[in-house]
């Protein structure tokens, strides 16, 4: 089988949310292009990027919707939560206000996504340690209290960026394995390409049947 850019078993839909200027688009750009975009223009409405990753030997295509942080786009961006399997909620560790707004973002995320959506809290700009305004510990505590995954990242240096996206995917994949995420349901945020894995599943079932026969 040729390994082209289109061979993948799943598509996971992500959404990136958070205040204006926290570096959502830069995180996406760093993740998809492995480059830091120095003067990133404000996002108009929504934009999206894709990248194929591998989790547990499965190729997964991430379809990442990057939303505008500006309040005036809120009405538009809200519509993009539905059907997201993962939500990356970003704040800026050097601007306390962006951290203080997290609860409103979280409320939106909880209300507008499905219950299985994996929400990942990202404290961006970890390279600006000198200007830090939000401590790691308090953010960590906030994440724990709300059942979020958490990492501090830097879109500039690329530190932890991969991990944030990958850990989210791993968690989603784990939910699929557990059966807590139903792939057949509409708008689960995960699309399954049943090339090889489903066959594997079928053979499993066949074996089980044989076992029963005995």
């Amino acid at each position: 089988m040729a390994t082209g850019p289109y061979n993948y078993s799943y598509i996971f839909k992500y959404i990136i949310i958070g205040d204006m200027g926290v570096g959502k688009s830069c995180l996406l750009h760093q993740f998809t292009e492995k480059k830091f975009m120095a003067d990133c223009p404000h996002t108009i409405g929504v934009e999206f990027g894709t990248r194929i990753i591998e989790v547990a030997g499965q190729k997964i295509k991430l379809q990442i919707w990057d939303t505008a942080g500006q309040e005036r786009f809120r009405a538009v961006t809200r519509s993009y939560y539905r059907g997201a399997a993962g939500a990356l909620m970003v704040y800026d560790i050097t601007r306390r206000s962006t951290y203080n707004h997290l609860s409103s973002w979280l409320t939106d995320a909880r209300n507008l996504t499905n219950p299985n959506t994996v929400i990942f809290l990202i404290g961006n700009k970890s390279d600006l340690e000198a200007q830090r305004d939000v401590t790691y510990e308090e953010a960590k505590q906030f994440a724990e209290e709300n059942g979020l995954m958490f990492l501090e990242c830097s879109a500039k240096t690329g530190e932890n960026v991969e991990d944030a996206f990958l850990d989210t995917a791993k968690k989603i994949f784990q939910n699929i394995q557990d059966g807590s995420l139903d792939l057949n349901a509409a708008e689960s945020g995960v699309q399954h390409k049943p090339t090889s894995p489903r066959n594997a599943l079928n053979t499993d079932q066949a074996q089980n049947k044989e076992g029963c026969g005995c």
Binding site: A75, R82, S188
Partner: peptide
């Protein structure tokens, strides 16, 4: 969505902007 979340878009048909916005998104 599964189990009704996200809720069906038509449930918001009373809010024109949200209704139309959701459809277009």
């Amino acid at each position: 969505g599964p189990g009704g979340t996200p809720r069906p878009i038509e449930l918001h048909s009373h809010d024109p902007l949200r209704y139309v916005g959701d459809m277009l998104a």
